[in-house]
Design a protein around this nucleic acid. Structure first.
Lengths: 161, 161
DNA sequence: TTCTGATATGTTATAAGATAACATTGCGTT
DNA sequence: AACGCAATGTTATCTTATAACATATCAGAA
């Protein structure tokens, strides 16, 4: 996540991918759900459910949802999670868009303390190590939560301290 | 965590270790904090802050804290976390006693969906893999959250299904 | 011993995150 | 048009967590 990039492109890509994925799977990416996905993608920082709610509330009053309530948002988020279009960051109670919703994967996240940017990792070695560790303990794994808090390349790097 | 074990022993051990650790470090393990630690150790299932609060409320009315409020509990939990005596399970918003508070380690947890039992792992291979993955991304790691949800040996095992 | 400053705890109020339960809408099918 | 189903709206409430300020307690200095 470079400091400067065409984020509009990120959003457009994500929405396109979502359209394709849902078209293929038959899942209904309704305008509301699509809008929530777009809002979650506003940045590479995780977004809270109530931030999404606030943004929805800002939407032109002419829109369907004139005064959305929490369940509206949580239901949309739930749908997007189920489709693998977003992830939930447990350590932050927040949500973030998934950059490769097509691939099946456990979320592994690097969360920067300085700038809040979250980078998703898909590291087979980590997955393997975890699986092996679980196996030794006789544990049959299902869902992995892996969140690493620290300092990202940009915030640590000498170029712009 | 076998189905049957002398859990009183677990608790006693944990409290002893806490006493020793705090004595050495100069941290003040007050009666309240010690009591909260004891309550967190009531089981090998994670315990919520409000469960601790409820238990504290049950304590003999003669005790100092006749009607404790949330901050009382959260402050004690915060202290125990800082001393490494307990861990927080982010995916559950709950707390669990640390079986080896002396060792410096990142929390790696196996959480059973069936029985709720949490086992703490200290797996160097996992830690290494994560560090390596972070390094490749130019990320300087600080705090690791690793929680694996699944089925534990006992609940999966054929002996008592 | 008494004072004092720091740390710990009490108290009140509220913020933030999430869900239960039921009502309504909208859309495709028959 | 009538039905059935999925999505959304609505109201209320629950759980988790913290802010802000008051009081108490303890260790060490005077």
């Amino acid at each position: 996540m470079a400091r400067k990039h065409d984020h509009g492109h990120c959003i457009a890509d994500a929405l396109d991918a979502a359209d394709r994925l849902c078209a293929r799977s038959g899942a209904r990416l309704t305008p509301l759900r699509r809008r929530v996905l777009e809002l979650v993608w506003q940045s590479h920082q995780p977004v809270g459910a109530y931030q999404v709610l606030a943004a929805l509330t800002q939407d032109a009053p002419g829109t369907k949802a004139r005064n959305p309530a929490p369940p509206t948002v949580y239901r949309a988020l739930e749908f997007l999670l189920a489709q693998g279009l977003i992830h939930r960051l447990e350590s932050r109670n927040a949500y973030i868009g998934c950059p490769h919703p097509d691939r099946d994967h456990a979320g592994q996240f690097l969360i920067c303390r300085e700038c809040g940017t979250v980078t998703e990792l898909v590291d087979a070695a980590i997955g393997d190590a975890v699986r092996r560790g679980a196996e030794v303990a006789g544990f049959r794994p299902n869902r992995l939560t892996l969140e690493l808090e620290g300092t990202c390349r940009h915030c640590a790097g000498g170029s712009h301290p």
